[in-house]
Design a protein around this nucleic acid. Sequence first.
DNA 1: GGAAATCGTGAACAGCGTTCAAAAACCATA
DNA 2: TATGGTTTTTGAACGCTGTTCACGATTTCC
Lengths: 213, 213
Amino acid sequence: MALDREETSERVLAIAEALINEGGMDNLKARTIAEQAGISVGSIYNLFADLDGVHRAVNMRLLDRLGAAGAAAMADLARRDVTDVRQRLLALAGAYIGFVEAHPGSWPALLAFNRRRPVLSEPDAYEARLDQLFEIIAAVLAEGDFDIDEDTRRTAARTLWSSVHGIVTSGYAARSLRRQADEIERQVELLVAVFIRGLERGGTFAHAETTAP
Amino acid sequence: MALDREETSERVLAIAEALINEGGMDNLKARTIAEQAGISVGSIYNLFADLDGVHRAVNMRLLDRLGAAGAAAMADLARRDVTDVRQRLLALAGAYIGFVEAHPGSWPALLAFNRRRPVLSEPDAYEARLDQLFEIIAAVLAEGDFDIDEDTRRTAARTLWSSVHGIVTSGYAARSLRRQADEIERQVELLVAVFIRGLERGGTFAHAETTAP
DNA sequence: GGAAATCGTGAACAGCGTTCAAAAACCATA
DNA sequence: TATGGTTTTTGAACGCTGTTCACGATTTCC
């Protein structure tokens, strides 16, 4: 009858994610987890170093699922023989937007997590999982036949990813959810369209002086 | 000898900002403020509703200063008769980057602040102050002679602002500060260049189906 | 100068994350 | 199965937190 150590961990993580998603990261309390999981507070500390460790583990699961959603969106388009770069980028952005909407509490909490303390150089398997998503974008850009070198393409992929991220997070900082959803869609469409046009136009993107001396 | 109510408030805010900037938002404690300000804990609650109110006030000051930095950057370029859109956009982004670097603790704390709880529709004079910054970008875009309608231009301004925001915040989530500073600069330059090229190329940005049915 | 209103105070309270001695559960071996 | 040792689970206890509020000091006003 006794649950496996790993089963208990997953149970704790599911409860933790639900708590965070419902009431924000302030809603993640050791005693609430213990009560809902049917274990004692002390047991949580046998499974995780501290509550931050629990939150970190929740975030890892979220990042994995986000990566899976992006990959699934690409697989879906591939199945339908859609190779158009614009449509693929919009589908990726759509997957991201859908994921954020599906996790209205736990995703903002993930973003807030690393910003609570000043960066103390975490080992961060975080970045690795974000890179997984970035690689998808880079691959999409690589298949479009832009006349740009490898370096520029990778920078472009990162820029696109960061920009979509900025649009989505800035958008949901504001109030009315439905009205802002339209605004986010407009901005993403404009970003993708402008990006493709700008890259298609070719030419160099070499560093230049930012302001006159 | 007794300090004005407003003087005391500003003293509290200065201390609060320093605490947040040094140790993240978790470092903002009522007893520490009271001790450093030479007042009692209770007095803080005569000046502000709660500690969140203190943090909110600190954030307002930050947003005001950020807006001033952007306006100052534009004024500086105007004084030197620089009207080039690209240079102005890069200067704005540079002002933002410089501001973030100058506030390595309190700026991330500002970003984390609204993400701690799920959006409960705050009255938010927040957005108003962010709009002040957005208006500067919109004005710069308006002075460039792009063949786009007013609506598109405003969306483009918001998109640019969100994108730069995303680039900067994503960039500083990673570790090594100096190495990442270069990456941020590269991404911002690419974003601005691609954006200008894409907008210059004209054409419509009308909504289109994101994926085939 | 005295009454009334305001302000400052810090002990007290409830709640939090975290610890750790003790109890319970488990397990291999005789 | 009985036994001894090892591991896991427990929850009371600790220190720290934000916040309150009765009380005393101070200012304000006529």
